[in-house]
Simulated scan of single mutants.
Amino acid sequence: MSDDTIPVLAVDGPGGSGKGTICRAVTDATGWHLLDSGAIYRALAVAAAHRAIDESDPDALAEVGRHLDVVFAPAATDDVRVWVDGDDVTRELRSETTGELASRVAAVPAAREALLERQRAFRKAPGLVADGRDMGTVVFPDAPVKVFLTASPEERARRRHKQLKEQGVDVSLASLLDEIAVRDERDRSRAVAPLVPADDAVELDTTGLSVEEVVGRVLKLLQERLS
């Protein structure tokens, strides 16, 4: 089976819209592979920080991206552990500081280009669930099924606050809401691969919906589009 015939479910949307949870559940239900593109950008942000490389240096960022030594491995829980340059950076990867840096790094065209082929290499049989912000518009524009998840900023902030509290991270809900607003504006207005739905994406507002309801709708869409 050639790469371009392997089906891809491209799931895009802002942080806190439920992409990660939904994509993992769909992966479990289908047996497909999973691409967490946000984790790759966070890994690049961590690698750059460890090397004291500033996001204002696109050439240096691109060089790190082309040779990024990142390993994802299953953990005892539903999450995964992540190694960058041989170091376990799982906790650092999920911090708000890394998330903010990753958002700035993702706005650098050279960095995005350096990671493009690395992301496309995840496309393997029997299929791929791609979680990100430009999966349907840039990375897999030929994906037969595209979904754009969203939720109200308040709902997204509450979800992130709950997640961080469970991880033992003390952060205020108000500060998270402010960070979401800043990150959304940066993602939507960046010159390369802005956060927008693909023309043929199905938009789904997850505010007030359970995980089971959203997964059910996505699986139904998959069945309709691929049958």
Results as ranks from 00 to 15, higher is better:
residue 3 D to T: 05
residue 6 I to S: 01
residue 9 L to W: 08
residue 9 L to V: 07
residue 12 D to P: 02
residue 13 G to P: 08
residue 14 P to R: 10
residue 17 S to R: 01
residue 17 S to C: 11
residue 22 I to M: 11
residue 23 C to S: 07
residue 24 R to F: 03
residue 26 V to M: 08
residue 33 H to A: 12
residue 34 L to G: 12
residue 36 D to Q: 13
residue 38 G to P: 09
residue 39 A to Y: 00
residue 43 A to T: 09
residue 43 A to I: 03
residue 44 L to I: 01
residue 47 A to T: 10
residue 48 A to L: 14
residue 50 H to S: 14
residue 52 A to K: 13
residue 52 A to I: 10
residue 53 I to K: 05
residue 57 D to G: 06
residue 61 L to F: 11
residue 64 V to Q: 00
residue 69 D to Q: 15
residue 74 P to Y: 14
residue 75 A to S: 15
residue 77 T to F: 08
residue 79 D to Q: 13
residue 80 V to K: 06
residue 84 V to M: 07
residue 85 D to S: 14
residue 90 T to S: 14
residue 92 E to H: 04
residue 93 L to N: 07
residue 94 R to K: 13
residue 95 S to Y: 04
residue 98 T to H: 01
residue 101 L to T: 13
residue 102 A to P: 02
residue 105 V to N: 06
residue 107 A to E: 07
residue 107 A to L: 08
residue 108 V to G: 03
residue 109 P to G: 11
residue 115 L to D: 08
residue 118 R to V: 04
residue 119 Q to R: 15
residue 119 Q to D: 13
residue 120 R to D: 02
residue 120 R to T: 09
residue 123 R to Q: 11
residue 123 R to P: 09
residue 126 P to E: 05
residue 128 L to E: 03
residue 129 V to A: 06
residue 132 G to W: 06
residue 135 M to G: 02
residue 136 G to F: 02
residue 140 F to S: 03
residue 141 P to A: 06
residue 143 A to D: 05
residue 143 A to N: 04
residue 144 P to V: 12
residue 146 K to V: 02
residue 148 F to T: 01
residue 148 F to D: 01
residue 151 A to C: 13
residue 153 P to T: 09
residue 153 P to C: 10
residue 154 E to N: 06
residue 160 R to S: 10
residue 161 H to F: 15
residue 162 K to Q: 15
residue 166 E to W: 06
residue 167 Q to K: 15
residue 171 V to N: 00
residue 174 A to N: 10
residue 175 S to K: 14
residue 177 L to Q: 15
residue 178 D to T: 13
residue 178 D to F: 04
residue 179 E to T: 09
residue 179 E to C: 01
residue 180 I to Q: 11
residue 181 A to C: 11
residue 182 V to N: 03
residue 183 R to I: 02
residue 183 R to K: 01
residue 184 D to T: 03
residue 184 D to L: 08
residue 194 P to I: 12
residue 194 P to V: 11
residue 195 L to Y: 00
residue 198 A to P: 04
residue 204 L to R: 02
residue 209 L to V: 13
residue 211 V to F: 12
residue 211 V to R: 15
residue 212 E to V: 06
residue 222 L to K: 06
residue 224 E to M: 14
residue 225 R to P: 08
residue 227 S to I: 11
residue 227 S to R: 15
